[in-house]
Simulated scan of single mutants.
Amino acid sequence: MSRKHILLICATGMSTNMLVSKMRKAAEKHKLEVNITAVSANDADARLISEEIDIILLGPQVRYMKSKFLKKVEEKQIEVHVIETKDYGMMNADKILLEVLNGTEQNTDE
């Protein structure tokens, strides 16, 4: 698998930083080549222009923006997923990371 760039988007970009740290540790543990960053919803557009993003993960608090991001990235073939509220709250980084990379996440929060 080639290196994937995952962009986590939440309301302010603050709460997601802890999850990013845990996801990076999970990636190391599983020997996965990923670049994971977090950004606020307000700053996401600039990142989508300036960086090569493969996967967008939306925090549960901004799940209502999924259709907006799908429309923005449809030509770039960027995947857009919503993190389940339970997994986000429990900072279940292993599950979130592995499910999104394997395309098996269960988005019940959409």
Rank of each mutant, 00 (worst) to 15 (best):
A38Y: 04
A41E: 12
L32T: 04
S50R: 09
K71R: 05
I56N: 04
N35V: 14
L57A: 12
E74K: 15
I49K: 05
D54K: 03
R63E: 12
I55H: 11
K72H: 02
G59S: 05
S50N: 06
Y64H: 13
L57C: 12
S67E: 13
M65N: 02
A46E: 06
P60H: 05
I53F: 08
A46Y: 07
V62K: 09
L48I: 12
Q77F: 14
R47K: 13
A38H: 13
G59P: 03
V62I: 14
K71P: 03
R63Q: 11
V34D: 00
P60D: 11
T37L: 11
P60N: 07
P60Q: 07
E33P: 03
V39S: 06
T37H: 10
E33R: 01
A41H: 12
K72F: 01
N35Q: 13
N42V: 13
E51C: 13
Q77A: 15
L48V: 10
S67R: 04
V39P: 00
L48G: 06
L48H: 10
D54C: 07
R47H: 12
S40Y: 02
K66Y: 07
V62L: 05
R63I: 11
E33H: 00
V34N: 02
K66A: 03
L32C: 03
E52M: 08
L48C: 09
Q61R: 14
I56R: 02
A46I: 06
K68G: 02
I53Q: 06
M65Q: 07
V73T: 07
A44D: 00
K76M: 12
I36F: 04
E74D: 10
